[in-house]
């Protein structure tokens, strides 16, 4: 995969992810109206420490009337950027994502919001300064962040006894906080399954950075396993946003795994 194809694929997939996220926000817009859950009049109080001009900016974009308009513009922009990947459009998507995060007091969907911001920020820089060095740096930044996310997730699990014994996975699946299909719950009733699955997940996550120094078929297989992992997470925990956003980082990983970081060719 060459540099230009890799960056283009990242652009297209993250734009699609932003498009989906925005549609989802619009479908639950009542929940952030003044008769819903996240009422701006209550949340804006938390910004009292900001200078008045900054508060005015947040109030302008995030009030009950303008916030849905911002979402509609974001949706149009995400659609547009799939075909016209301009740096200014990615910059708008990045800033709108920051505003949305603030609207929900930091983030709406945790990890997937963070990864979206990281990729959009990187693509904004690349779009505004599309030199070979910056494009390469951006792909490495995205690949490293993605590898770090798997590595950290695996590391914190490995440190917990409940994950090492497999009980945590079973408890998560059986807990009232999630509602996976019955066949998954059936599997989770078996300690052997929980133990094996937990260790497979931890080994997969912790060893993920090794993908960056592979240069053969292993990379493709590893990424397919990663995709399957997120695919299953949708059915177990409902984490669909993670599937699409992390998928956006895979072209960067694929490029970096095969590309010599110190070469000068595009």
């Amino acid at each position: 995969m060459n540099l230009l194809l890799a960056i283009r694929l990242v652009q297209i997939i993250i734009s699609f992810a932003v498009l989906i996220q925005t549609i989802e926000y619009l479908l639950i817009k009542e929940s952030f109206s003044e008769s819903g859950v996240w009422r701006w009049k209550e949340i804006q109080v938390e910004l009292h420490f900001l200078p008045s001009w900054a508060q005015a900016v947040f109030n302008f974009f995030l009030n009950e009337h303008n916030f849905p308009i911002l979402l509609w513009i974001r949706l149009s922009c995400a659609l547009l950027v799939i075909f016209f990947p301009a740096g200014s459009l990615f910059l708008f998507l990045f800033f709108s994502s920051l505003l949305i995060a603030q609207r929900f007091r930091g983030s709406f969907n945790g990890g997937s919001d963070y990864m979206s911001l990281i990729i959009l920020m990187a693509l904004s820089i690349q779009g505004l300064f599309p030199t070979l060095l910056i494009t390469k740096g951006v792909l490495w930044y995205i690949a490293l962040q993605s590898a770090t996310s798997y590595f950290m997730a695996g590391l914190v699990k490995l440190k917990l006894n409940s994950w090492r014994t497999g009980s945590a996975l079973g408890d998560f699946i059986q807990s009232p906080n999630y509602n996976p299909p019955i066949w998954i719950k059936w599997f989770a009733q078996h300690q052997t399954f929980n133990f094996s699955a937990s260790w497979l997940i931890m080994i997969f996550e912790i060893s993920f950075p090794l993908i960056l120094i592979q240069q053969h078929l292993v990379v493709s297989v590893w990424l397919l396993v990663a995709f399957a992992f997120h695919f299953l997470n949708v059915f177990v925990f409902g984490l669909n946003r993670f599937l699409i956003v992390w998928l956006a980082s895979y072209p960067a990983i694929y490029f970096c795994a095969f590309e010599n970081i110190f070469s000068n060719s595009p």
Partner: peptide, 22 residues
Amino acid sequence: RAPKIKWFHLILNPHGNYYLAH
């Protein structure tokens, strides 16, 4: 309550994500 997960939630899952935000 955590919503039941359907096949189309692979792409679009607004109420599931509302639940996760909660």
